[in-house]
């Protein structure tokens, strides 16, 4: 669901002098031609090392984001206001887990292992979308995450369905199909609250105020300052720039906010007739980088919860393996 940090490097590896890999010219030319013709690259095809590395980083960060993304909403499952909302929230959180599985599988086709990826996440080496390093303070936050956070993620993910790497594109098609339910359920939950008491309406407005700017930052640094964007565009991994996606999101969201009856916390937000788009105010990139670099309000807690879940589940994985080994042993004919 969440792809903000796709152009954010993971924690730096020990510095070694960068050596540009020498790629066989003929294979490189065939690869370039296929990508230029909007063709797809499949796991068995030759690909430049840098392309493979970029995809492993991006797809695994994306997978981690789905998995960590279960935590802020999972917090509300036991406190959902009705059985209906609880069932919806469980289904949504389960979807996020499923999305993580699709994406880990896609990354594995590039030669990395599930174990390596999980270790990178659990040791804090790998990044995930920093939107999850903010707390979900009220029930309205759950609705706003569906409406705005998932809405931003959909904007980001639709172009990825045309990504040049086949397994990633196919995983994204599946994810996007399911994501639309996430956004609609959030928006509907907020509509219900807006028809409620003044206190409920204030709660929705407060949640919108807290999440709006963070959602705009989810699209990543401005194009002028985005480390990997240009190369990724060239490779057909990224199709639309961070700034263009952000603008699309603002343009789509303003009318939705009007219908809902909330204001967006930006005094500079107004329709620009000449551009045919909404203008909006400057984003606080310092805060964004602070959070990306580990200093957001929930970074430590999220990672600790994730590691604990993995550790607590160890006995289940061990038991499954032991059972499989026993079954296999029993299936063997008696040794002479």
């Amino acid at each position: 669901m969440y792809t903000q940090s796709l152009s954010i490097p993971d924690a730096p590896a020990p510095k070694i002098a960068p050596v540009a890999p020498v790629e066989p010219a003929e294979l490189q030319a065939a690869f370039d031609a296929r990508v230029a013709a909007d063709g797809r690259i499949e796991p068995q095809d030759w690909m430049p090392q840098a392309y493979r590395k970029t995809l492993v980083r991006q797809i695994s960060q994306h997978a981690h984001s789905e998995i960590v993304g279960m935590l802020p909403e999972g917090n509300w499952i036991s406190r959902a206001p009705s059985l209906k909302r609880k069932a919806i929230l469980i289904a949504k959180v389960q979807d996020e887990g499923g999305h993580g599985q699709y994406l880990y599988s896609a990354a594995e086709t590039l030669g990395t292992s599930r174990e390596e990826m999980l270790n990178a996440l659990h040791t804090g080496k790998a990044k995930y979308s920093s939107i999850f390093n903010y707390p979900t303070l009220t029930w309205a936050d759950v609705g706003v995450i569906g409406w705005l956070v998932d809405g931003a993620a959909i904007m980001n993910q639709i172009p990825l369905c045309r990504c040049s790497y086949g397994p990633y594109a196919r995983a994204m098609i599946r994810v996007c199909k399911e994501e639309s339910f996430h956004q609609r359920q959030g928006y509907e939950a907020l509509l219900v609250m807006m028809r409620g008491t003044p206190g409920q309406r204030r709660m929705v407005q407060d949640a919108v105020n807290r999440w709006w700017w963070k959602c705009l930052a989810m699209f990543g640094p401005p194009d002028s300052n985005s480390a990997h964007s240009e190369q990724s565009m060239h490779w057909g991994i990224k199709r639309i720039s961070n700034d263009d996606l952000r603008q699309q999101f603002v343009d789509a969201t303003v009318p939705q906010a009007e219908v809902l009856g909330v204001s967006l916390p930006d005094p500079l937000l107004r329709w620009n007739e000449a551009r045919g788009h909404y203008d909006f105010g400057p984003i606080d990139w310092d805060e964004f980088w602070q959070t990306v670099n580990g200093n957001g309000p929930c970074n430590v807690q999220r990672l600790a919860t994730r590691v604990k879940a993995h550790t607590d589940g160890q006995w289940v994985r061990d038991a499954a393996s032991a059972h499989a080994a026993k079954q296999q042993q029993r299936a063997q004919p008696e040794a002479a």
Binding site: Q101, Y102, E108, R114, R174, A320, A324, Q327
Partner: peptide
């Protein structure tokens, strides 16, 4: 439709159903 890790055939079926 995709792939997954599982300990044995039955487990794989269960996981496939959920995923």
């Amino acid at each position: 439709c995709g792939s997954l890790h599982a300990s044995d055939p039955e487990h794989a079926l269960q996981m496939a159903r959920d995923i």
